[in-house]
């Protein structure tokens, strides 16, 4: 059966060309930004730099790292991401585990209670008013709590517990006199590290990248996460770089405009690189998460 027809080979060729074109379209902007961030700004604006870095300079990064608001934003984002992910797991895992156990009564009802929030929600304004009345405005809690867990994550984690924790194991532990708390923490969680990783990563990426909650709930610049600072630099263009001295002082207007461009490229890399570097190694966890999520019961 090792017979390939001409049309099949043509198909393969066209298919490969099609994919290569898509890959170039997707990757080119990323490479361009990376190269531009370490190239001389005049080379970038004149078009001499079009793929690989030209006349390498790290001036953009020096300026980015000398900017205190970026450091603070970075620190805030790390804090919100770590705290938010931890709370996410503390809310999600116990609930998903309990829902996976057959002894639980009214399981259908509880699941629908949770799933209904996917179909309908109060919307932006009522949610904002509740967050406000809880006294969370302008605190870390407004970033961490309003989206602490979604119905989808609970379904995914529950499916995982359902499939990978055998009933006999739980029953045997119960006969040995273990309580449900003990079983969950000492027996079930150690066997469930993959799902813990998947859920933590999904949530952490979301927290790292979100800006909207911070935009509506935070008012102190000191508390802004990185994405809000980035919004000022990249989108609103209203960032006043506070210490021109750090960039060498006495720059002409043209220099300033060019350095501003360089800073934009550098700041994109500084904010996105941690995820882009780490994700190929943890990609399988993400894919796994999507796959468990697609299993319909």
């Amino acid at each position: 059966m090792k017979r390939f027809s001409l049309s099949d080979r043509m198909f393969d060729t066209f298919n490969t060309i099609f994919l290569v074109i898509i890959l170039i379209l997707i990757v080119y902007p990323l490479i361009f930004v990376l190269s531009a961030s370490i190239s001389d700004p005049t080379a970038v604006s004149s078009g001499r730099m079009w793929l690989w870095p030209v006349e390498i300079t790290f001036r953009g990064y020096e300026r980015v790292f000398s900017e205190s608001s970026i450091w603070r934003g970075y620190g805030n984002t790390i804090l919100y991401t770590l705290a938010g992910t931890l709370i996410h797991l503390l809310v999600l895992l116990p609930c998903a585990y309990a829902l996976s156990r057959k002894e639980l009564m009214a399981k259908k009802f509880i699941l629908w209670f949770i799933l209904f929030t996917m179909l309908f929600n109060g919307g932006l304004i009522p949610t904002y008013l509740i967050v406000q009345s809880l006294g969370m405005l302008n605190t870390m809690w407004a970033i961490v709590i309003p989206n602490v867990v979604g119905a989808w994550s609970i379904l995914v984690a529950r499916t995982f517990f359902h499939q990978s924790i055998p009933d006999q194991l739980v029953e045997a532990s119960k006969i040995d006199g273990a309580s449900d708390f003990y079983i969950f923490i000492r027996v079930v969680l150690p066997l469930s590290l993959p799902i813990v990783a998947v859920m933590a990563l999904f949530h952490a990426v979301g927290l790292w990248n979100q800006y909207f909650n911070a935009l509506i709930y935070l008012s102190d610049r000191d508390k802004f996460p990185l994405q809000l600072i980035l919004r000022e630099i990249l989108v609103v263009n209203q960032m006043q770089l506070n210490d021109p001295a750090a960039g060498g002082g006495g720059e002409s207007l043209v220099d300033q405009v060019q350095t501003a461009g360089l800073i934009k490229y550098a700041v994109i890399i500084v904010s996105s690189l941690p995820l882009l570097i780490v994700y190929p190694f943890i990609q399988r966890f993400f894919v796994q998460g999507v796959l468990i999520g697609s299993i319909k019961e």
Binding site: P94, G122, I125
Partner: peptide, 28 residues
């Protein structure tokens, strides 16, 4: 199985406070 129900408490509280109360708050 009371401990199983305790495990549900944080998530249920979250959904009530940040989803169902805002749904009810839609009355504004």
């Amino acid at each position: 199985n009371w401990q199983l129900y305790v495990l549900l408490v944080p998530a249920i509280a979250y959904f009530i406070i940040l989803h169902y109360i805002p749904m009810y708050g839609v009355q504004i």
